[in-house]
């Protein structure tokens, strides 16, 4: 069951600023990238203006494999405690990416019964409006099954 939106309610767009615009521009092109410190190599998500480890402001964007595992989740089931522009039920997940950073996102088409902490997922890009693409996640077969 794919997440459904209520077209009558506007969805809050990301607040795009100088620090995160590279991330959102890449998402628009269906690419997932993370901020990387040019000096010490630390990956940081969400993007920040300065590296919290070495205080360098020299940054680049590192491509992500798009693969990770579910770290935590919540299930929006009660409309009054959910975003009115999205039909309940829907799942918000924190995904721990292979690169070691975490992302907040949605499960693209899963029910609560289908997910668990530790479940392998991979990114999919949902063009939910002409001007808005969101990176979401789908179940993926674990590596051991893929490499036969």
């Amino acid at each position: 069951m794919v997440m459904e939106y209520n077209p009558a309610i506007p969805l809050l767009r990301p607040h795009i600023d100088l620090d995160n615009q590279g991330f959102w521009e890449a998402v628009k092109q269906h690419k997932l990238i993370f901020q990387k410190c040019k000096d010490c190599g630390l990956l940081v998500h969400r993007p920040r203006p300065m590296c919290p480890r070495c205080n360098s402001t020299e940054k680049e964007w590192a491509p992500s494999s798009g693969k990770g595992t579910i770290y935590s989740w919540v299930n929006f089931v009660y409309a009054n405690a959910a975003y009115p522009g999205i039909k309940v039920p829907y799942l918000v997940v924190v995904v721990e990416m292979e690169e070691g950073v975490r992302m907040l996102s949605n499960m693209y088409d899963s029910k609560k019964e289908d997910i668990h902490i530790g479940m392998p997922v991979e990114v999919v890009f949902d063009d939910i409006a002409d001007d808005l693409t969101l990176p979401k996640f789908k179940r993926r077969e674990a590596e051991t099954k893929v490499i036969r």
């Binding site: 969805l11 767009r13 995160n20 969400r46 522009g85 918000v92």
Partner: peptide, 8 residues
């Protein structure tokens, strides 16, 4: 902006 588009 980092949470609302996902309905969080």
């Amino acid at each position: 902006g980092s949470i609302m588009p996902y309905g969080f």
